[in-house]
Design a binder for these strands. Sequence first.
DNA 1: CGGGAAATGTTATAATGTTTCATTATTTCC
DNA 2: GGAAATAATGAAACATTATAACATTTCCCG
Lengths: 163, 163
Amino acid sequence: MARSPLAYRPHNHNACIDAALDHARVLCQQRNARLTAIRERVLALVWQSHRPLGAYDVLAELARGGQHAAPPTVYRALEFLQQHGLVHRIASLNAFVGCSHAGERHRGLFLICRRCRNVLELTAPPVNAAVEAAAGDAHFQAEDVTLEVSGLCPTCQTEAVDD
Amino acid sequence: MARSPLAYRPHNHNACIDAALDHARVLCQQRNARLTAIRERVLALVWQSHRPLGAYDVLAELARGGQHAAPPTVYRALEFLQQHGLVHRIASLNAFVGCSHAGERHRGLFLICRRCRNVLELTAPPVNAAVEAAAGDAHFQAEDVTLEVSGLCPTCQTEAVDD
DNA sequence: CGGGAAATGTTATAATGTTTCATTATTTCC
DNA sequence: GGAAATAATGAAACATTATAACATTTCCCG
């Protein structure tokens, strides 16, 4: 049997964070975008886990680190990170998650476990093709796609009692 | 060339509303669900157009009709309507739209025009199949799917200057 | 170094959604 | 029909998420 995706298994998550930060630094340098201290800090916080983090959770984490900030600061940082494809907003949760395909130009599909709340981001070309086709049939010009699937991850299926 | 979908064209919209209300009444009767005055009123308001309506918009419309109501009233009505598949919540807009496939047990796909804000609901089995397949590959047990496509509807494509 | 753009700080407020408890309506069952 | 149980609504307060507006600082570039 295949192993569960990384996001759903225990793993050395510091490696995830470091990789994401390194990647972000490179990307921003290439684009002449300024990955300032706050932006980097917010990115690190979002990557603290594979669970989406609300803007006010980020705020609270900043405060825990002794860094006072007001909502606009966090929203601005998140907006920057989104624009550069470093985080995604999960509309169904009003929360943000690190992008695991940063820089790749992709259309993400998110598998959100309702039990452990971990999120796995997939790139599924057949899904995108099918969506494009459906939109095309309706003569609709697609720009952005929000595709979020809620359910149970492999780990939680085995123990879910239906909570 | 095929005509645009109904939602994007001028049409006798009162017919939409009436059909939706009739359909809702029948469905609720079959299910022993109580389509109370408020619920029916909210459903009618949501169907006022093919544009999603926010909960507070519904509230304002109720007020315009002389009917005082507090937020929970509206949220409760919307929740009931959702549970019975009579309206859908559009997560990316925090708003609600009438379901055009009420009672059919379906998984909707929403085409949201960013210019005129009309929404067309589609049922696209190939899309659902592709999503299921992608989730299955990740051993993920899908329950709910949020699939919202933002872009330009046929009508607005011809005149969109990029606003 | 100085001028301009970008980023951040700060305060206030808007928009969206929920909790809680009281009250009223509706069904059920004798 | 009438009492008990259940479902629905009313009402007030509050929690959460997001933005507006304007002042200040930082950074880049010449």
